[in-house]
Amino acid sequence: MSDEVTIERETKALVALNSLYTLKKAMIITYEDEGEIERDGLRIEIIPSWKWVLNEGHSDINNDVITRTAHKVRV
């Protein structure tokens, strides 16, 4: 599985969900990658797990959709 396949799978799922339910925030949590991408008008934040735990914790888990992946993604 390549990085492009992983990022496409994860973003596609978030975009599809956003078409059903308007998301306040969309994230892909990775092992170490960080960045931001936009797909079909949806801003998706890519954040390393350590940073998510320290900065975000679980406070937004009920309001946001978070996709976790251990694969490295290129932004």
Rank of each mutant, 00 (worst) to 15 (best):
Gly41Tyr: 03
Arg43Tyr: 01
Ser49Tyr: 11
Asp33Gln: 13
Ile61Pro: 00
Ile44Arg: 03
Leu54His: 10
Gly35Val: 03
Glu56Pro: 00
Glu45Trp: 10
Glu45Gln: 14
Met27Trp: 01
Glu56Arg: 09
Gly35Phe: 04
Asn55Ala: 07
Tyr31Gln: 13
Ser49Glu: 10
Ile28Ser: 01
Ser59Ile: 11
Asp40Ser: 14
Ser49Pro: 00
Arg43Ile: 12
Asn62Thr: 11
Arg43Thr: 12
Ile47His: 09
Ile29Cys: 05
Ser59Ala: 14
Arg39Trp: 05
Ile46Tyr: 00
Ser49Asp: 05
Leu54Arg: 15
Asn55Ile: 05
Gly35His: 07
Ser49Lys: 09
Glu34Trp: 05
Asp33Leu: 02
Asp40His: 08
Ile61Trp: 08
Ser49Met: 12
Gly41Asn: 04
Leu54Glu: 15
Glu45Ala: 05
Pro48Asp: 06
Leu42Arg: 08
Met27Arg: 06
Asp40Thr: 04
Glu45Phe: 07
Gly57Arg: 10
Ile47Gly: 09
Pro48Thr: 07
Ser59Leu: 09
Tyr31Phe: 08
Leu54Val: 11
Arg39Gly: 03
Asn55Glu: 15
Glu56Val: 15
Ile29Tyr: 05
Ile46Arg: 00
Asn62Gly: 06
Asp60Pro: 01
Asp60Ala: 12
Ile28Pro: 03
Glu38Ile: 12
Arg43Met: 09
Ile28Asn: 00
Asn62Ala: 15
Trp50Tyr: 11
Asp33Gly: 04
Glu34Arg: 13
Thr30Glu: 00
Trp50Cys: 04
Ile29Ala: 07
Arg39Lys: 15
Met27Ser: 06
His58Arg: 08
Asp33Cys: 12
Ile44Phe: 08
Asp40Tyr: 08
Ser59Met: 10
Ser49Trp: 07
Ile61Asp: 12
Val53Ser: 06
Glu32Met: 04
His58Ser: 11
Lys51His: 09
Glu34Ser: 15
Asn62Pro: 01
Asn55Cys: 05
Asn63Gln: 14
Asp60Asn: 13
Trp50Gln: 10
Ile29Pro: 02
Val53Phe: 06
Ile28Glu: 00
Gly57Ile: 06
His58Trp: 11
Glu38Lys: 09
Asp33Thr: 07
Thr30Ala: 03
Glu45Leu: 13
Ser49Thr: 07
Arg43Phe: 04
Pro48Gly: 06
Pro48Ile: 07
Gly57Met: 10
Ile28Tyr: 02
Asn55Phe: 09
Glu32Trp: 02
Val53Leu: 09
Met27Phe: 05
Ser49Phe: 11
Ser49Gln: 09
